[in-house]
């Protein structure tokens, strides 16, 4: 690929690192008014909602059912108190069986 590739890589690394580094390094959460703190504390749950849906429906191209089964199984295991690892492995297991027989 040549030197252009490495310059591009350097640029990609830089613009990926900056949004990760600057807020975490230079904010300590004490400088915000309560409403801003409240919004920041909401972000993890909002991010999870946005990350899961609708992308989970498209994990298998052209087969929304696959993602729906995965979502359902994961939700059930998590709802009945399974830890994150059991949710991940259990969902993979069920979908592996599904893929084998479908």
């Amino acid at each position: 690929m040549g030197p252009t590739y490495w310059w591009m890589l350097f640029g990609m690394a830089l613009v990926t690192y900056i949004p990760r580094m600057i807020p975490l390094t230079f904010l300590d959460g004490k400088e915000f008014p309560p409403i801003v703190s409240g919004v920041l504390r909401n972000i993890p749950y909002a991010v999870l909602g946005a990350l899961i849906f609708p992308a989970i429906l498209f994990v298998q191209e052209g087969n929304i059912l696959f993602g729906m089964i995965g979502a359902g199984v994961a939700f059930l295991i998590a709802f009945f108190g399974g830890g994150v690892m059991s949710v991940v492995l259990g969902t993979i297991g069920v979908l592996a069986v599904y893929s084998l027989f479908m």
Binding site: L48, V59, A74, S86, V87, I92, A96, L100
Partner: peptide, 19 residues
């Protein structure tokens, strides 16, 4: 079949963290 099933892993993890 395993490749297909493992594609769900990260989403399952997100659900496991959220629920």
């Amino acid at each position: 079949f395993l490749q297909a099933a493992m594609a769900i892993a990260l989403y399952a993890m997100f659900i496991g963290l959220l629920v």
